[in-house]
Amino acid sequence: MSLTIGILALQGDYEAHARVLARLGLMPERDSDRLFPPPPSAAQPEFVGHWRFVRSPADLAGLDGVILPGGESSTMLKFLENETFWRELGSLLQRQAVFATCAGVILLARQVGNPPQRSFAALDVAVERNAYGRQIDSSVRQGEWAPGSPDAGRPLEMVFIRAPKIADIGPKVEVLATESGLPVLVRQGRILAATFHPELGADLALHRMFLRAAAA
């Protein structure tokens, strides 16, 4: 199956996500979304399909999955708080595979604190923004896959940058990995959400998991 993945590209590290998708075999759908310089083509493509940068509601048509990247959630909201964009992305989040990292999790949450702001409430978690502190408190840590997960026991490197904290999770939310006992990687239906930045690390496991969900 050929996938079409949208990467929300209003602001943030959308290009880092595109470079990971390129390593897994995906190509830019449009010339204007080509990366400069182009990443080397995947040695062994694991997936077939394309990515597209999403900057307007029209870019959402026909997507099999969408990535909400890291960045400043308050900046992204300025663009999303357009009636059509909000409604169409909100509806896509209910139907398709979603992968959110850091700021993306804030956009998806049921409730946002520090300070409170509008969110899609597609993921039943409450998050606190900048809960670990400022940039000097950012760190690369080893997290743990939850017991029972197929990856349990395998180390998972996590890059936290001015990260939000998941303060509360609803009954339908499954915790896939923790760091210092706190949930940092969760899943609810077809939504996968990480408070850290797998797109800045070497481990492709989470993007793989997302693309499999998008293909299902």
Partner: peptide, 19 residues
Amino acid sequence: MPTPELRLKTGLAEMLKGG
């Protein structure tokens, strides 16, 4: 892959892209 320190430092700059 750059050192963890440099990745954290450039990481915040990555988050500012397009901004």
